[in-house]
Design a protein around this nucleic acid. Structure first.
Lengths: 234, 234
DNA sequence: TAGTGGTCTAGACCACCCG
DNA sequence: GGGTGGTCTAGACCACTAT
């Protein structure tokens, strides 16, 4: 069968390994030859084989343990990757025009549920923003957001009438920790009105919490217009 | 400031780079020093620096181009990763007990929408299965699935009374291409009944299509019980 | 065309952990 | 204890692309 070929790149090796897994030459739960042996078979080096196997492990095909060796995973715990783009970009990518509109901006005391969610001490001041994102003038996403000025004081001077808090935050808050949840919620009166959907209808919802070096910066609830699907291929 | 240290691993280097990005020492859109320069600063080698920067690029922090160099990304197109576990495992992880129950199993001609969705020629025979997954005897997920026997003939002999098609497919279909979508749907009568929720309520729904070497194998619609959230941290 | 990242080689030491 | 993967080094050639 597959005789040793010359000049196999780590990509080639990945492909061969995946093929063998898919064709059950290496069945689920079975042990692969050691890196050294594979390097020999592929007339390659252990470094190159290592990279191939390491990436396949990251992709969920293999499990690797020192001494134990490399094993084919049977559970397809394949990792789905979603990129979480800015609404603006998400809309632009479909070729539609993007429009933003501010609905409300107020400074208020953090409601209890928010304080609990973000682990704030009570009575903290927060900036509350509601806004809309349109694609080709049709409602695309209704955004309800809370920002903690204590974590990012400049926000009190920011102007959200022309562009959304998302755009602003991206410029101000470099890279942080995120928690993203997806769920289905029932459209209340406000959501229904802004998304132009019947009240009570199901709405695909994302909740996104952002931290900057341990301090909570913002919580956003993103309500998507009816028909929205989040899709990925692996 | 940070003087060159000895023995920095690629992990250390990643950490330093992330810190510098977060502290705006390397601002968004700015260019990093070349790998060679960084290797010198960190008293390391280009290989090691390369691995650190490569991984950070995969994680969405950096953009790398030959000749152009390595640039800090400003758009936080951070990639959210979700693992898509078997229901059984997902339930087990919460510590709850898992129970499976078959609702219906029929062989029928593929409905038009399914044929279109899977790019089947019309009139193809499909196995239709409906089943339930319970966590601690409470409804957790209602599964509606179609399997194409032509792609995997053994399915006609399989027994789905004791365990679900998911478990069976995992054993039979090694690794394939997946398309996963998430959306919010409205509970119809059947969904409502099985999930023990009011009809018309929003239901978090996953649709999963699996291919085996280009041939469509199965389409599954997974309806989650009220309150379900899919969450990830990055 | 020159500079950057992409990749490979050959070798080494080490950490982990199964038997 | 010994074999496996994890990582690092030092060097090389190459592919791409900005200029």
């Amino acid at each position: 069968m597959a005789a040793a070929r010359e000049n196999m790149s780590y990509r080639d090796i990945k492909q061969v390994v995946v093929d063998r897994i898919q064709n059950r030459i290496w069945a689920p739960d079975s042990l692969l030859p050691s890196e050294t042996e594979l390097a020999e078979e592929f007339s390659s080096t252990r470094t190159t084989v290592n990279r191939a196997l390491r990436e396949l492990a990251e992709e969920g095909y293999l499990e690797r343990k020192r001494k134990a060796g490399t094993r084919v995973l049977n559970a397809p715990v394949r990792k789905a990757q979603f990129s979480i783009p800015l609404v603006r970009d998400e809309i632009a990518e479909t070729g539609a025009s993007y429009r933003y509109s501010l609905v409300e901006q107020t400074l208020l005391a953090a409601p209890d549920w928010l304080a609990a969610r973000l682990e704030l001490t009570q009575g903290r001041q927060v900036l509350h923003i509601r806004c809309m994102h349109y694609a080709d003038n049709a409602p695309f996403q209704y955004e309800v957001r809370w920002i903690i000025p204590e974590s990012i004081p400049e926000v009190l001077e920011a102007d959200f009438t022309q562009s959304g808090p998302n755009d602003w935050l991206v410029q101000k808050v470099p890279f942080t920790n995120l928690e993203i949840s997806f769920m289905a919620t029932k459209a209340d009166q406000a959501i229904a009105e802004f998304l132009d959907a019947p009240a009570g209808d199901p709405v695909f919802t994302a909740e996104r919490i952002t931290w900057l070096r341990g301090a909570p910066v913002t919580l956003a609830k993103l309500y998507f217009a009816p028909g929205y699907r989040m899709t990925t291929h692996i």
